[in-house]
Design a binder for these strands. Structure first.
Lengths: 260, 260
DNA sequence: CGCCCCTTCCTTGCATGCAACGAGCCCCCC
DNA sequence: GGGGGGCTCGTTGCATGCAAGGAAGGGGCG
């Protein structure tokens, strides 16, 4: 299961490639029954796509998908921040967030690798605690559905900075975002907390740009092999024939006469 | 698979009850292998919860969970509306939305059952088309993760009105929300579209109140058996000992010394 | 020479048998 | 009489055998 995910993340299988069972059986050393279970789970996570006739292929993600995933993470983390603000935070949680962020602040100007690893860990725990403070198990599930994608986690693209210290400013901005989030949650300013968290997630967009412009760095991002750099043809919304086919004519109100 | 979900929705199994495999095998007439697959899928959908030692139990939802699901649906549908506004809508899509909503408007004051069924269908297709207009497959997936819960769909609680015509005003308000959404999307007013969609989803909160106050109606809501009416004890955030246990001491910044 | 049909192999999905883990209970010992 | 240890049964997870569906290739017919 874990090994199978690693296999896909590392680009061992190319997008669109069929994931046949028998080769995986002899590659992973497990039987077909647990393998099928793992494949179904990875399909649910969105890494695989089920074929109509059975079987799975590795799903392909466009650069637009990555941007959407980042925006959606911002939306959901924004909701978490808003919930935390609206529902009230414990003094202990606020203190923990502050302590984490203070340590983060002491790390953003260091450039050794160990400090950066610590930064990643602390950043993860900051976001995890804020999510807990929302006190919504459904929100946790929703966010997991996004962050399970390899490039959508709160720290997935951050380590572009590790390779390119010139853009360390982003870490400074992220640190300030954290401070604003703590303040907004404490003052129960839900709207502010929400928009701050959204903007915070959008920092990953900057990292994405950095990463795609440096192919050597991109190759170190987990799951980068699943992303097609060539953007899919953005259809012109004004004259898009692909949007025309109506799969469900019965639901098309234009074809539905007024009820008797 | 479908039959298994029906079994849970209809309250054939109570929340917390263990879903043993062998009884289900002789009840559904299928073997254990596809049954296990179905159980895993239902766990992913959130209807079942996996036990640490193996096996599954029916998940229990509190009234707060239902409210969270409604709010989250509003958040995600709000994002869909915003995306549709920001990314531009085709004239065809806008016309389809208008046609659907016009028909809806002609139905809200009728009280026969057939009109209500038509209303439900049109409402679903309105929301479905708006979601398509967001042009984000990841958003579709996220929203599916919420609406797969039996009580969280856009029309799940609406039909409380079918039983209680006194509160048909909600349908009038929903119709106006739809009109505002179309207008906002056409004018590319993303923020307005988003907040309108959120408020639109919150109409379900009113339906929820109606439903819980009328137990006989509640029993007709799909999946109602999974909802515990007694609200879980809302812990006082200011003095909550349950939030204290730190599951991951290594990630606790308060215990982490400053890095060397 | 091209197209269609048939056959064959490959792949997936299902059913069943087996082993290992854990819970519950009974018996024995203290 | 109480507690602990061991035994037994029930349950889950895994491996393998079998059947059905589909795709591809080859052969035959038009």
């Amino acid at each position: 299961m874990l090994r199978l995910r690693e296999l896909i993340f590392n680009g061992r299988y190319s997008p669109g490639e069929r994931m046949a069972e028998l080769p995986l059986v002899e590659l992973l050393g497990v039987s077909r029954t647990p393998l099928r279970l793992a494949l179904a789970q990875l399909e649910h996570e969105g890494l695989l796509r089920g074929l109509p006739g059975g079987g799975y292929v590795v799903r392909e993600f466009t650069q637009g998908d990555v941007r959407d995933a980042i925006e959606l993470r911002g939306v959901l983390e924004g909701t978490a921040a808003r919930f935390a603000a609206e529902r009230g935070a414990t003094a202990r949680d606020l203190a923990a967030l502050r302590a984490t962020n203070e340590t983060i602040g002491s790390l953003v100007h260091r450039s050794d690798y160990e400090s950066f690893e610590r930064y990643l860990s602390l950043n993860e725990s900051f976001h995890a605690r804020m999510l807990k403070m929302a006190r919504s198990s459904l929100l946790v599930r929703s966010l997991e559905g996004i962050t399970s994608l390899p490039f959508a986690g709160p720290s997935a693209l951050v380590f572009a900075q590790a390779e390119l210290p010139a853009s360390r400013d982003i870490l400074v901005i992220a640190h300030r975002h954290h401070s604003g989030l703590i303040d907004a949650i404490e003052r129960r300013q839900g709207a502010r907390a929400e928009s701050l968290a959204r903007e915070h997630a959008r920092l990953a967009l900057a990292n994405l740009e950095i990463v795609v412009d440096n192919r050597d760095v991109l190759d170190r991002v987990p799951g980068a092999a699943l992303i097609t750099l060539v953007e899919e043809a953005e259809p012109d919304p004004a004259a898009d024939p692909a949007a025309a086919p109506e799969p469900d004519p019965a639901a098309d109100p234009a074809a539905a006469p007024e009820p008797a």
